[in-house]
């Protein structure tokens, strides 16, 4: 209470923040949940369990998982080389890692489509090899890999920098080969950060829309992700159906978020113990 007396502005700043947050985020979000609770259980169930919706969830989760997995592998290698090695162009590459955050999704969407469509820069070679990339589930995965790319690299970089060189030296002195040291010493201490990065990339991919809408071709049952299905329902003025699927996807991403928070807590306590 003593603090409040010295510094002014508590009431007005807190009041304004809560009011603004409520008007812009919380009340509109409540409209979404009320829309769903206001409809009957059958309506909700019909919307979320329709075969077209199930196909959309399957694709969304599978492609998001695949994209996050690709990022976990290559993001690890990228973070490793950026932190440990010196090579020309490193600074520029490090700055450009965040491009998927900075580049509007519509721009990445049309650029990726131009690359992977049948007569695109890369697509034409894939086509010759019999691989259909744009307008297929593979195209969706490529777009989701792009949007999730920064997460794994950016969570691993600080963890790699904080790694205690003493542990590696100890392992080497005790006779471990480089690969053994990596597998038994380095990898286990990076695992929490790697999983966090993977989970963040996965969560981001679940809700993605802009970069996918161009490359996927939006074919129901084949390349339609959950966000696209929501938009399709809104365009048909099926608000309750759209809200039902929206609530389901929202709950999925909240669960992911909770898992990530628990993970970070775990990471924190691990680092706390080693420090």
């Amino acid at each position: 209470m003593a603090r409040r007396r010295i510094l002014p502005g508590f009431g007005i700043t807190l009041g304004y923040s809560v009011l603004y947050l409520s008007l812009i985020v919380l009340i509109p979000l409540a409209a979404l949940f009320l829309r769903v609770t206001g409809s009957s259980w059958e309506q909700f169930w019909d919307a979320v369990s329709a075969p077209r919706a199930i196909a959309a969830y399957k694709l969304t989760f599978a492609a998001s998982f695949a994209g996050a997995a690709v990022n976990a592998v290559f993001g690890f290698i990228v973070a490793w080389t950026l932190v440990r090695y010196r090579f020309p162009g490193k600074r520029v590459l490090d700055a450009i890692i965040d491009l998927p955050f900075a580049l509007p999704t519509a721009v990445s969407g049309i650029a990726l489509t131009a690359i992977y469509s049948r007569n695109g820069w890369v697509g034409r070679y894939l086509e010759r090899a019999g691989i259909e990339s744009a307008f297929s589930p593979l195209g969706v995965t490529i777009a989701l890999t792009f949007v999730g790319l920064p997460f794994v690299v950016r969570t691993l970089q600080p963890a790699l920098e904080d790694l205690d060189p003493g542990m590696e030296e100890a392992a080497a002195t005790l006779g471990a080969g480089r690969w053994q040291t990596f597998r038994r010493v380095i990898l286990p201490s990076l695992l929490p950060a790697l999983i966090t990065g993977f989970a963040l990339a996965f969560a981001r991919a679940l809700g993605e829309y802009g970069s996918v809408v161009f490359i996927s071709g939006n074919m129901p049952f084949r390349t339609e992700i959950a966000s696209l299905l929501i938009v399709a329902k809104l365009e048909q003025y099926d608000y309750t159906g759209a809200a039902s699927i929206g609530v389901l996807m929202l709950l999925a991403s909240f669960l992911m978020l909770l898992a990530i928070n628990a993970l970070q807590h775990w990471v924190g306590s691990r680092y706390g113990r080693t420090a």
């Binding site: 923040s17 809560v18 947050l21 985020v25 919380l26 009340i27 509109p28 979000l29 409209a31 979404l32 829309r35 999704t105 969560a203 679940l206 809700g207 993605e208 829309y209 802009g210 966000s227 929501i230 938009v231 809104l234 608000y239 759209a242 809200a243 929206g246 996807m249 929202l250 991403s253 909240f254 978020l257």
Partner: peptide
């Protein structure tokens, strides 16, 4: 309050637009 401020990051863009359509 801190978690609520971060909420828009956790919400899919499509859902962010949809809530206004519903209001």
């Amino acid at each position: 309050l801190i978690s609520l401020i971060d909420l828009p990051f956790a919400i899919s863009p499509v859902i962010s637009g949809m809530v206004y359509v519903l209001v």
